[in-house]
C-alpha cells in the first residue's frame, strides 16, 4: 500500500498529555507515553536450524537472542526473545508490511512469520519511579542489577499479559494486547499517581 490510512491507537480517545497525580514540582516520578506505528512481527522457527539463524541475521542485522529473556538490537530494530522457538521483531517502520515481507523473503516456509503490529499497544514507562511502578504490578525482581537494559520478561500485571522490555536504566516498554490497552493504561496511571506523572506526547515509532 502506498498511502496507508492512519493507524488508530487503542488509547486514541483516552490519551491526554499533561502532568497528573501528586504534586511533583516539575520532576515527575514517572513518565508515560504510547509508542505508535511500530512494526511488530512474530517469528517462530527452530533454534537449532542454521538456515533459520542465518536468515534472521541477514534480515535483521543481528543475532537471534537465544538466551531466555534477552534482546538483540540492530539500529532501530530489536529482536526480542519470547519463548524457546519464538521471537518478536520490532522496528519503527510505520508500514508493517515491509518488515513482514523482509522476514518472509529471508526465511523458508519452516519458519512462521506473522505480522502482529496491530495486536499490541506499546506503552513506554520511564522515570525514577518506573521500577517501583513495575514492582506494584508484577511478581518479578526489578532490581536495577537484575532487570537490566536489554532484558525482557513476559508476566502478568493487573491480570493482563505484558511483555516488558528494559530499554535503559529507567525506561521500559510494555507490550500489551490491544484489547487490554485501556485497562492497562488506567492501571499505569493509578499506580503512578502517588509519584506524580507526566503523559508525554504520543511517540511515533
Amino acid at each position: 500500500m502506498v498511502d496507508i490510512t492512519e493507524r488508530r491507537s487503542a488509547l486514541e480517545s483516552h490519551y491526554t498529555a499533561g502532568t497528573f497525580g501528586a504534586e511533583c514540582n516539575g520532576h515527575p516520578g514517572v513518565m508515560l507515553a504510547v509508542r505508535r506505528n511500530l512494526s511488530i512481527v512474530h517469528v517462530a522457527g527452530k533454534p537449532d536450524d542454521q538456515t533459520f539463524i542465518n536468515a534472521i541475521k541477514s534480515a535483521c542485522g543481528c543475532d537471534i537472542p537465544f538466551e531466555p529473556g534477552s534482546v538483540s538490537v540492530a539500529g532501530s530494530l530489536s529482536l526480542i526473545w519470547l519463548a524457546a522457538d519464538r521471537w518478536m521483531a520490532v522496528s519503527a517502520e510505520p508500514d508493517p508490511g515491509i518488515l513482514e515481507a523482509t522476514l518472509r523473503r529471508a526465511c523458508d516456509d519452516t519458519v512462521a512469520v506473522i505480522d502482529a503490529s496491530h495486536a499490541s499497544t506499546v506503552l513506554r514507562l520511564s522515570g525514577p519511579q518506573a521500577r517501583t511502578v513495575l514492582m506494584k504490578g508484577a511478581p518479578l525482581d526489578f532490581h536495577a542489577r537484575t532487570f537490566t537494559p536489554g532484558r525482557v520478561a513476559t508476566t502478568m500485571i493487573s491480570q493482563c499479559t505484558v511483555t516488558l522490555v528494559c530499554i535503559d536504566q529507567d525506561t521500559f516498554d510494555l507490550y500489551v494486547f490491544r484489547s487490554f490497552a485501556q485497562h492497562m493504561w488506567e492501571w499505569l496511571r493509578d499506580a503512578s499517581e502517588e509519584f506524580g506523572y507526566e503523559v508525554s506526547d504520543i511517540l511515533s515509532g
Binding site: A10, S179, M184, E186, D190, A191
Partner: peptide, 18 residues
C-alpha cells in the same frame, strides 16, 4: 488492592469500542 470496581478484572475492548 487496586483490583476492585471497574478493575476487578480487566475489560477487553474491540477496536470499534469507542
Amino acid at each position: 488492592g487496586p483490583e476492585r470496581g471497574g478493575h476487578f478484572a480487566p475489560t477487553r475492548r474491540s477496536p470499534v469500542h469507542d
